[in-house]
Simulated scan of single mutants.
Amino acid sequence: MIEVFKTNIQNIKEAYFVMSQLLKRFPDYKINFDLEDCDNILRIDGTVVHPQIIVECITALGYECAELT
């Protein structure tokens, strides 16, 4: 299952930080960013992805995140 999120993550340093934090909690996820997209897209691929938990985790790190439907 792939979930897609809009973020306010601006650069690769922030993206790597967020990715590392998410992978600590969800080590089986495949995570990538598309920072060239106007929505600074975050994609997460996993067997079961709970979008609300992802939003909460990223918000706790001080960034904005919203699920794209």
Rank of each mutant, 00 (worst) to 15 (best):
N32C: 12
D28R: 10
A60T: 09
R43Q: 14
E14C: 04
Y29W: 14
S20V: 03
V49S: 06
L61F: 05
R25H: 09
D34P: 00
P51F: 05
K6V: 01
A15W: 04
T69C: 11
E14D: 11
V48M: 09
K24D: 09
F5Y: 06
C65N: 05
L35R: 04
K30I: 10
F5R: 10
L35K: 05
M1P: 04
C57M: 13
N40T: 03
D37I: 05
F5C: 10
L42V: 00
R25L: 11
D45F: 01
Q52H: 15
L22R: 12
D34W: 00
I41N: 02
I12A: 07
Y63H: 11
H50M: 10
V48D: 07
L22H: 08
P27D: 08
I53L: 09
T59P: 05
C65V: 08
I53V: 09
V55S: 06
G62F: 05
D28P: 00
C38L: 11
P27M: 05
D37N: 15
R25M: 06
H50D: 09
L22G: 07
E64N: 14
L23C: 02
Q21H: 10
N40F: 01
N8D: 15
L22W: 06
N40L: 00
K24M: 09
A15Y: 01
T59W: 12
N8E: 05
L61T: 04
N11F: 03
D37M: 03
I31P: 00
E56R: 10
T7G: 08
L42Q: 03
A60D: 15
C57I: 06
L35V: 02
L42E: 02
K13A: 08
L61W: 02
I53Q: 13
Q10T: 08
L35Y: 00
K24G: 00
C38I: 14
G46H: 06
H50P: 00
K30N: 07
H50Q: 11
A66G: 03
D39P: 00
D45P: 00
G46L: 05
E14V: 04
F33L: 12
H50N: 11
Y63D: 04
Y29R: 08
L23K: 13
K24T: 02
F26S: 07
E64A: 13
C65H: 02
V49H: 10
R43N: 14
K24L: 06
F33G: 06
D45K: 11
C57Q: 14
I2H: 05
G46F: 02
S20A: 13
C38E: 13
D39L: 07
M1K: 12
D28S: 14
K30H: 11
P51S: 13
K30F: 05
C38Y: 10
Q10M: 11
I9E: 03
N11G: 01
E3D: 07
I41W: 00
F5E: 11
E64D: 14
E67M: 08
E67Q: 14
I2K: 10
F26Y: 15
C65W: 04
P51T: 00
N40Q: 10
L35P: 00
I12L: 14
E67G: 03
L35Q: 09
I9S: 02
F5H: 09
I12F: 10
K30T: 08
K6M: 09
D45T: 06
K30Y: 10
D37P: 03
